[in-house]
């Protein structure tokens, strides 16, 4: 210590000694950051410029079809298919998760088998399978097994329309993934929470609903947001069974006018727009279930602008120098 203090106090040869209060601290200059940022922006500008000027991209066709009725019909199907599949996925997934955590070895085995099958086979195969299930079972019966008593009899092809097949395929596949996310969420909650609830006389089901699941949600929501975004795009796969989602309708169009690239641009613009919108409710949910943890106290919008203004301020400071 003593030697440091002594050397700091000693003026360098050839320079006048400054009083300590007039010394200015200079942060490290990151010249490399500036150079790489300029290079990256230039490359991006070049790419966007070349895309905008490329006549093969046919922006006029993109504009014609961006708000076409056919596209809106497809969007509607895509949206309800996403919402309904996620609802099935989360509902069945939670059930499977609870079964996998249960002490009952049969329930555990069935749940594990379910996850193994639906996570272990390609989604495309599952969609086609449900779409052509009519070939496997000509008609569906609900009755008492091993007797002639039947309550309901239906033709499989009437029941399994492309929309229903798509919903089953996406929903059950999602359930397999969601169950693992929910299970991880439930297991992330401290066992002491369950003990505290039990010691107050709360029964297991009430403990799960009031104490464990609300805390698990904090861990469950970010990956489920991811799954929802994934689902929105995966609905495009159901075009293989002609379920009339956004992608099916886009394919119908370019099959007749051969404008593949412009039509795919239309699809991409809409998928991007929907994904952007989906991130808003996710932020709200994260804030709701994050209460009591000290994080996420401000609204997502406020957080976004606070971050932006902070960034602006620091850049301006750098610029001022």
């Amino acid at each position: 210590m003593a030697s440091v203090a002594a050397s700091a106090a000693k003026p360098r040869p050839g320079r006048p000694a400054l009083p300590p209060e007039e010394l200015v601290a200079v942060p490290v200059r990151h010249w490399g950051r500036w150079i790489s940022a300029v290079a990256a922006v230039a490359a991006l500008a070049g790419l966007i410029g070349s895309l905008a000027k490329n006549a093969n991209l046919r922006w006029d066709i993109v504009g014609d079809y961006l708000f076409a009725d056919l596209i809106f019909d497809g969007l509607q199907t895509t949206l309800w298919l996403t919402a309904a599949s996620m609802a099935i996925g989360l509902g069945v997934g939670t059930l499977i998760a609870v079964m996998r955590l249960s002490d009952n070895p049969v329930l555990y085995g069935i749940a594990t088998l379910f996850v193994w099958v639906f996570r272990g086979t390609p989604l495309l195969v599952q969609i086609i399978f449900w779409g052509y299930a009519g070939a496997l079972y000509k008609e569906l019966l609900i009755g008492i097994p091993f007797t002639d008593v039947t309550f309901i009899r239906a033709d499989t092809n009437d029941l399994l329309t492309p929309a229903v097949a798509a919903l089953l395929a996406l929903g059950l596949n999602e359930a397999a993934y969601a169950s693992e996310i929910v299970r991880a969420g439930i297991q992330s909650v401290d066992p002491g929470q369950t003990e505290a609830a039990h010691s107050l006389g709360m029964r297991p089901a009430l403990t799960m609903r009031r104490i464990v699941l609300p805390q698990a949600m904090r861990v469950i929501i970010p990956p489920m947001g991811n799954e929802t975004i994934n689902m929105l795009k995966m609905t495009a796969l159901v075009s293989v069974i002609a379920a009339h989602d956004l992608m099916s309708n886009i394919q119908d169009v370019y099959a007749s006018n051969y404008q593949v690239i412009p039509m795919l641009m239309v699809a991409s613009i809409w998928y991007l727009a929907l994904v952007t919108l989906l991130s808003i409710p996710q932020a709200w949910l994260e804030r709701h279930y994050g209460r009591g943890t000290g994080h996420h106290r401000r609204s997502p919008l406020a957080r976004m602008f606070a971050g932006a203004s902070l960034r602006l301020r620091t850049t301006r400071k750098k610029g001022e120098r």
């Binding site: 002491g192 609830a197 039990h198 029964r203 805390q215 009591g292």
Partner: peptide, 26 residues
């Protein structure tokens, strides 16, 4: 049964070393 165990626990209060308060509630 769990229901009966829960009913008896209502009459016995317990305080834990690590508090175990429910963090999502005031």
């Amino acid at each position: 049964r769990e229901r009966e165990v829960a009913a008896r626990r209502r009459d016995i209060g317990m305080v834990f070393q690590r508090f175990n308060l429910f963090p999502h509630m005031t």
